[in-house]
């Protein structure tokens, strides 16, 4: 029982980070219908920015918001200078779907190469701001540590902020309207192009946070080839698909579901099966519930 609760705690923490990455992917998908592999590169680059700021200032609480801003700026930059011209020029429907996918894969590769060029073999260090030693409950150390509590707190805070932005603000209404019905939105006076860039920017900030948290929750160090980031991108996509790719709530449910399942497998079946299991879940969801586990057939959710 004790072991199971610990496993759940580990799964929920990891899953909350996948949720953030899934949100980053869903936001871009909803605003521009682009499958954004560059989200992994944006998270990686922002995490390097965060580690540099941490090195200079010594404060995690300066490093995190700066990394989020960097992620937002980088993501908006990619949308504005690469994806927007590409989508405007692509001739037919097939190109519109296919070209952006290849483009974001290319951008991911370029970003990794540039980071390699800048940082070389240097490792970006992101030491956790709080202890990762578990709290002691009735003499035994549990998996919940001050660090894990902090991670969960940051994710929860961001989700509340996102919900408020989407449901209560004008830009939130514009973002939802533009993703559901771009033409009606334009006829209503919404500057859809601008709104799309804002959607990418928010996605970049979410991805940056996911990158930072993934690093402090893991090895505490980041390299341009970090395996943790490949995992983050893949698990983010799997979580987004589990949640039905259209829905922010779905992304959260998908991330937590994936995190918990993978933690259970890791604990009881061994680490060699984790990657296999993630892809098996992906395939099963795609085959059995292509609209996601909470998706309604053909429906779109806020």
């Amino acid at each position: 029982m004790f072991e199971f609760v610990n496993t759940l705690l580990i799964g929920i923490t990891a899953g909350s980070i996948y949720s953030l990455m899934a949100i980053a992917i869903v936001l871009v998908w909803r605003s521009t219908r682009v499958v954004n592999f560059a989200a992994g590169g944006i998270a990686l680059a922002s995490t390097f920015v965060g580690s540099t700021i941490l090195e200079i200032t010594g404060s995690f609480w300066i490093a995190l918001p700066v990394a989020m801003l960097a992620g937002a700026a980088l993501s908006a930059f990619i949308e504005y200078f690469f994806l927007r011209p590409l989508l405007k020029r692509s001739g037919d429907k097939n190109q519109e779907i296919f070209l952006p996918i290849i483009a974001t894969l290319g951008i991911l590769g370029i970003m990794k190469a540039v980071l390699h060029f800048i940082y070389g073999e240097k490792i970006g260090v992101l030491s956790p701001p709080l202890s990762d030693k578990g709290f002691i409950v009735s003499g035994e150390s549990i998996a919940l540590s001050p660090l894990r509590l902090l991670i969960l707190g940051i994710v929860l805070l961001l989700m509340i902020a996102l919900t408020l932005i989407f449901q209560r603000t004008n830009i939130g209404l514009s973002l939802r309207a533009a993703s559901f019905a771009p033409e009606i939105s334009r006829l209503s006076g919404i500057r859809v192009d601008l709104v799309r860039t804002v959607g990418w920017a928010i996605s970049g900030a979410a991805g940056a946070t996911a990158g930072i948290l993934q690093t402090v929750n893991g090895s505490g160090a980041v390299t341009p080839e970090a395996f943790e980031f490949s995992l983050l991108l893949v698990f983010g996509f799997v979580a987004a698909v589990i949640g039905g790719i259209e829905s922010l709530v779905g992304a959260v449910v998908g991330g937590l579901t994936l995190g918990i399942i993978l933690a259970i497998i890791l604990m009881y079946l061994g680490s060699s099966l984790v990657f296999f299991a993630a892809f098996l879940i992906l395939i099963l969801v795609l085959l059995l519930r292509p609209n996601g586990i909470i998706g309604v057939k053909g429906g779109r959710r806020a």
């Binding site: 004008n170 209404l173 514009s174 939802r176 309207a177 559901f180 019905a181 033409e183 009606i184 939105s185 006829l187 209503s188 006076g189 919404i190 779109r300 959710r301 806020a302």
Partner: peptide, 29 residues
């Protein structure tokens, strides 16, 4: 739209996922 030309496109041009209130607000954002 900002110059006073407003087009109600074919087929009941509302956004089904938004509430009635939000659909209205959209026009005045």
């Amino acid at each position: 739209v900002r110059h006073g030309i407003s087009h109600v496109s074919e087929g009941k041009s509302v956004i089904p996922e938004l509430t009635v209130s939000e659909n209205l607000d959209l026009g005045a954002l």
